[in-house]
Nucleic acid binder design. Structure first.
Lengths: 109, 109
DNA sequence: ATTATTGTTCGTAATTTTGCGAACTACGAA
DNA sequence: TTCGTAGTTCGCAAAATTACGAACAATAAT
């Protein structure tokens, strides 16, 4: 009988990859660093930190929001962005576990 | 005098983004998990874990190698891949620092 | 010499990402 | 009402990513 190979990836792997992918651009890392450490987090301030057009900044923010790492709220006429604490901690835990699970002493390396 | 805005991203941000980008695909996370925890790490074994063609596996391995997270050595007629321990720890430290630097209590969120 | 095994590389296609300017929305002020 | 401010969305282009099969290279076995 043929071995039926699971053609999917695990949910944890998908989730970790999703977080990693969102962090996979220097502009988005810069945004996250900024939001993680600054008092002010309006779109304009973020835009000022970055060497790219506002349309592009908006896109990057959207990707971070879609990945769950940040959230935004309208504070007319501005838009305030923040770290999504819950998912931030989830991401932190995913990465920590990922790196902790490396047991190179017992492996082939 | 005009304020000259730095049009580049920081080296740390570039490096972290590079690591994150390399981890930004479930196949590559699966590969890293596998290499991090298994005794065997030949190409064929890796390929067996994944639902994709060998050419694609080879490409993913190349990306991980380019990012510095793994290394490969020929063990004719097979190819053995391993975690690059040095850079793995570097990545671990980058991610840990990144997440640790979030101080949401004092920020706008 | 031919064949089989193990991976890599090539060529190609489809999709996604990145980036920009222009147009647009929403709101408050003049 | 018209204008200015703050961002988002649209439309587009260029580049990168993902994926595959076919062809290739390198070695070992027959």
């Amino acid at each position: 009988m043929d071995v039926i190979k699971n053609k999917e990836y695990g949910l944890d792997q998908e989730q970790l990859a999703r977080f990693a992918k969102a962090m996979g651009h220097p502009a988005r890392i810069t945004i996250l660093n900024y939001l993680a450490s600054m008092d002010s987090c309006y779109f304009g301030e973020i835009h000022n930190e970055l060497p790219i057009a506002k349309a592009t900044v908006s896109q990057h923010l959207k990707e971070l929001k879609d990945a769950g790492l940040i959230q935004g709220e309208i504070e007319t006429p501005k838009v305030k962005y923040c770290i999504n604490r819950e998912n931030w901690e989830k991401a932190q835990s995913y990465f920590a576990t990922f790196f902790a699970d490396c047991k190179p002493k017992t492996s082939c390396c």
